[in-house]
Design a protein around this nucleic acid. Structure first.
Lengths: 183, 183
DNA sequence: AATTTAATTAGATATATATAAAATTAATTA
DNA sequence: TAATTAATTTTATATATATCTAATTAAATT
């Protein structure tokens, strides 16, 4: 189900009158005027809602004698909400992939042969670069300042600046025992 | 789940931004500003939606470092939509029961010892009375006019009026072979 | 063909709400 | 304590839509 269809489905369910119509039809087939009487609404209003409901295949209709009977299409609703939420998200997913592509672009631009060519001036880009360097540190392990310097020096000579910025960017923390990775 | 709660739930799901938030949180926990960037909305708007979502227990939050992380409460959505529709409908159900009570009142008022005391003047009441009499006829079977008259005469002397009104009320139909019950 | 009646559509209105800008609060760091 | 930053709340606005009345259409009966 597309995101758009999911929204149409939930919009139909998110209205008191329509929900009552659906609940009524879950019990038995009904026609417009009877629903109108039951729900204390005008036939025009019921008709308006039934149209919306049939647009999403929530109901179907058939003629009998005088009346147009409406019935619930149960298969439309035989879905767990959670399953809908877990389906591929178009927009947000795309946005995430776009962000990942951007990160890769920044990394490609500032690293060469595993070395940091220069420290990015833009904060956002520096953050990405620092996150990349942070991967050299095992989470949970405490490092001495000397160890930190050596690991960072593998990437860039100015390990002082990088070490300081990693702290300020909350990628690392420190106390009297030493340094450790945060994210 | 009450009808009111169901509507609140579906209202939350029936909005593009909130649905995208939920889909994002289905993948991983996130904080306000990240969601804002991902969905191209302001933090204020994300905050507004997250508030609504937490009101229905769709998300929970916890602090970590700088950020307030939000996570999806999957149990809230582990429901089939159809199951919600099949739950007792408060209003519509009540209305149906009220209608049934009204029918019984009319029947009690116009029948005594299985006989029709008089033919109701109000169309709506007459309809109810006629439906009650129609139960004397087996569906599917064809009756001669004589048989019809006799069966109706068990309820009331004026079988001509009643027979005619049952036709006009679409409770019975006829052709050259005879009469048969419709509803 | 004319008439009745159910159903739908059109038009008008009132209500709800998604959104952003600005202001405020809360939490963390310096 | 001051300064920074994430998060929330307030306020204003624009959009969507549920509902009714009235008009129209469609179907069935006389």
């Amino acid at each position: 189900m597309t995101e758009e269809n999911a929204i149409r489905l939930f919009k139909c369910l998110a209205d008191k009158s329509r929900l009552q119509i659906l609940k009524s039809l879950a019990v038995e087939d009904m026609y417009v005027e009877l629903l109108a009487e039951r729900l204390n609404l005008t036939p025009a209003t019921i008709s308006f809602h039934l149209r919306k409901l049939s647009e999403i295949d929530a109901v179907r209709s058939y003629k009998t004698q005088y009346y147009t009977m409406y019935s619930l299409r149960q298969d439309t609703f035989a879905v767990k909400i959670l399953d809908i939420l877990k389906e591929q998200s178009d927009e947000a997913d795309l946005q995430a992939r776009r962000e990942q592509a951007y990160r890769q672009k920044v990394i490609d631009a500032f690293f060469q042969y595993g070395k940091l060519k220069s420290i990015p001036a833009q904060r956002k880009k520096e953050r990405i670069v620092l996150e990349e360097i942070a991967k050299a540190f095992e989470p949970g392990r405490i490092y001495s300042e000397r160890e930190v310097n050596i690991l960072i020096a593998d990437f860039h000579d100015d390990f002082c600046t990088i070490r300081r910025d990693m702290i300020s960017e909350q990628l690392m923390d420190r106390d009297e025992r030493g340094y450790w990775r945060l994210v």
